[in-house]
Amino acid sequence: MKGHTLFNWIFTILAAMVLLFIIAPLAGMFFDSSFSEVRTTAADPAVRRSVWFTLAIAFASTLFFAVGAVPLAWIMARKKFPLKSVIQGVIDLPVVLPHTAAGIALLGFISREGVLGGAAQKAGILLVNNGAGIALAMAFVSLPFLINAARDGFAAVPERTEKAALTLGASQTRIFFTVSLPQAWRSVVSGFIMMFARGMSEFGAVVIIAYHPMIAPVLIYDRFNTYGISAARPASIIFILVALLFFVLFRVLATERRVLFKREDDASD
């Protein structure tokens, strides 16, 4: 038993060191800032605007791309097809790319000279230096989180329940919405939250696409460059607190599934 205790001690110490590494810089930042500094920065309209803008764009971007990402996740979980592992590699690609490189690649695509950007411009929409471009940059780097989580969720749904629904007369569409999605819901929402969280904290890809309007990570970088660390620190604290608040809020909502996803009987009876 002695060996077992020693094992536990070593693992506990190693784990604690890693946790400390995460917590210490954040805690240090909080201790190094005075409350009045934070309050003054929080009252700054530029900071407020930037934080809300970041949250709204990250949310909109996640919601918009979920429309295609969730079906893609279902296909990856359920269908067998040639080059499936290549497609999975493509889905994971944004995670391994340097984000600035991702931004450059995306810029070529959505700038006026790019395929999408050119088409959008003809329709009177500009994709660079505005919210739409930022949303695309956020989505580009954060989509794998939603797709992969949702794919795991769909894969865990017993296929037999879908087959049973077929024998009971349901169409594929109905089965997706009444059998597959409700059972995979937790994973889909969890992926949604991860994509949202990853999107709103994105800097590298966004800064290439649009320095202005400033999302919070760019604003923090801008303050640091212009005024130094003491000016960047309170803005960072505010953004971290707001982001954490929303992150926790979504997690709570997601665990109470029925708040977000009404049961079929509530909806139709």
Binding site: P158, R160, T161, K163, A164, A165, T178, V179, P182, Q183, R263, E264, D265
Partner: peptide, 9 residues
């Protein structure tokens, strides 16, 4: 395995 829908009553 009966394949009842676990999320429904």
């Amino acid at each position: 395995d009966l394949s009842l829908f676990p999320h429904y009553s």
